[in-house]
Computed example of a mutant assay.
Amino acid sequence: METSTFVYDGDCAFCTTCAEFIERRIPTTARVVPWQFTDLDALGLTVAECEEAVQWVGADGARAAGPDAIAKLLADSGLVWRIAGAGLRFPPVRAGAWPVYRWVARNRHRLPGGTAACALPQEARERLYGPAGRPTTGA
């Protein structure tokens, strides 16, 4: 793989708005692509992984998801963004970033730019949050 890839949910208007912000404002060398139009097998990703969180596949094959993927994207960007990425990797910040990311993912259809199509599929919601809607353990 010659370049890193940041993969998001192209069916979600909120996610697409965020991806457009990245393309306009964050000077990254990574490809920013919706998973629906990407060869997931070539990237070593599954649909389930892409439904649950944004994904990063580095040029070296290293993978990350959710806020860890965002930190990798920022680390691949201009100086100010690299500093933000380093902050996101700082252990106490990273520990708090996952619950915030999961909340955003669970409520993305309610956020600015979100639509009903942004709601996670039931199977993905249950994998992430359990049948009662509470977060499951682990990252």
Rank of each mutant, 00 (worst) to 15 (best):
W98V: 01
W98G: 02
W98E: 10
W98D: 07
P99C: 05
P99E: 12
V100L: 15
V100Q: 07
Y101V: 05
Y101M: 01
Y101H: 05
Y101S: 06
Y101A: 09
Y101D: 07
R102H: 06
W103Q: 07
W103I: 03
V104R: 01
A105F: 02
A105K: 00
A105E: 00
A105Q: 05
R106Y: 07
R106V: 01
R106C: 09
N107G: 04
N107V: 06
N107W: 05
N107T: 11
R108D: 00
R108C: 02
R108H: 03
R108M: 03
H109A: 01
H109V: 04
H109S: 04
R110F: 04
R110G: 00
R110E: 02
L111R: 04
L111M: 10
P112F: 06
P112V: 12
G113W: 01
G113H: 01
G113L: 03
G114W: 11
G114S: 03
T115F: 08
T115L: 08
T115H: 09
T115Q: 05
T115K: 14
T115S: 15
A116S: 13
A117T: 11
A117L: 13
A117N: 11
A117D: 06
A117Q: 13
C118F: 03
C118G: 10
C118Q: 04
A119K: 13
L120G: 02
L120M: 12
P121D: 11
Q122L: 14
Q122C: 02
E123C: 06
A124I: 04
A124G: 08
A124L: 02
R125D: 04
R125V: 05
R125H: 04
R125E: 09
R125L: 14
E126A: 11
R127Q: 14
R127V: 11
R127I: 10
R127P: 08
R127H: 15
L128K: 01
L128S: 08
L128C: 11
L128Y: 05
L128F: 13
Y129L: 08
G130L: 12
G130F: 12
P131W: 07
P131I: 13
P131K: 15
P131E: 09
P131Y: 11
P131Q: 13
A132F: 12
A132D: 15
A132E: 15
A132S: 15
A132C: 15
G133Q: 10
G133A: 13
G133N: 10
G133W: 12
G133H: 09
R134P: 06
R134M: 12
R134G: 13
P135Q: 09
P135H: 10
T137Q: 09
T137S: 15
T137E: 12
